[in-house]
């Protein structure tokens, strides 16, 4: 029989290490004594977009923050279990967290450009890594801004303060800042919730381009966005991973009733 539509058939349960960007094993996390994540085990496939969805407080932002140890900023946070990136458990106490965060970039809900020029924003991480040659920095800035689809809009005003950019431009600047460090993984925590629908579509299209060179994990409250942009979707509820599968399946024929209730707006 003729196959009219080609479908990717990665089986999440049998991904090998080469196909895996992040492997989470029995992750438990608590703030003080309140459990936030319980027994999370999953493999995030490399060069794909994975969406985390669920109600507020279900632990999706906490989970994404585990992937570059942002939760370390909260002294009351305790976690156990393994998160393996590139064969190393990043939860190990000897992990070099600064290097980890260069490899695993993060973009937040609200654009947070530094109070400096567009150029210096992009160079910030590179300079921290010891890159000082002007030519090298120029090239990196141009490439990062092109990758973030912002170059044409700002190439003539690179030394203007970043604060003059619009919300959508600022968010792309922040993505460019993360991309300048050539991350293997990009974490996006509700990156478009403060943006208008058209700018949102531009950022989503940007994500589709970026996944060719890095793995993207996105947290979103917007189920339509998760459906549109992601290859795989994980549904979390009260800190537990309820269902994790390719987005085509999850949004057309979810296996668990809890997922069905949530995505069809019947929950709670």
């Amino acid at each position: 029989m003729l196959t009219l539509f080609e479908r990717e058939t990665l089986n999440l349960a049998t991904l090998n290490d080469e196909q895996t960007a992040i492997r989470v094993e029995q992750l438990n996390l608590a703030f003080d004594k309140k459990s936030v994540l319980s027994e999370i085990s999953m493999r995030i496939p490399a060069n794909r977009i994975v969406a985390l969805i669920g109600q507020s407080g279900c632990g999706k932002s906490t989970l994404i923050s585990c992937f570059n140890r942002m939760n370390d900023f909260y002294p009351q946070c305790r976690y156990e279990g393994k998160i393996i990136i590139d064969g190393r458990n990043i939860n190990h106490r000897n992990e070099n967290v600064a290097q980890l965060r260069a490899r695993v970039g993060m973009v937040f809900q609200k654009p947070n450009p530094f109070p400096m020029s567009i150029f210096d924003n992009i160079c910030y991480g590179l300079r921290l890594q010891g890159v000082t040659q002007r030519r090298q920095l120029d090239e990196a800035v141009e490439q990062a801004l092109k990758d973030a689809a912002l170059w044409n809009e700002v190439k003539d005003r690179l030394f203007d303060p970043a604060s003059v950019l619009s919300g959508g431009q600022q968010q792309r600047l922040v993505i460019a800042r993360a991309l300048a460090l050539k991350p293997e993984i990009l974490l996006l925590d509700e990156p478009t919730s403060a943006l208008d629908p058209l700018t949102t579509l531009h950022i989503e299209e940007l994500m589709a381009q970026l996944k060719k060179r890095c793995t993207i994990v996105i947290v979103t409250h917007n189920m339509q966005q998760a459906a549109r942009v992601s290859d795989y979707t994980a549904f979390l509820h009260q800190g537990r991973l309820i269902e994790y599968s390719d987005s085509d399946t999850l949004f057309t024929t979810p296996r668990k009733k809890q997922t069905e209730d949530y995505i069809t707006g019947r929950y709670g």
Binding site: M1, L2, Q224, S247, D248, F251
Partner: peptide, 21 residues
């Protein structure tokens, strides 16, 4: 084969409605 094509296209319509709205 034609029946199979109908089912595949139907499935794709369903997928596009669910994912692309």
């Amino acid at each position: 084969a034609i029946n199979s094509m109908e089912m595949q296209i139907d499935q794709e319509c369903l997928r596009i409605i669910a994912k692309r709205h």
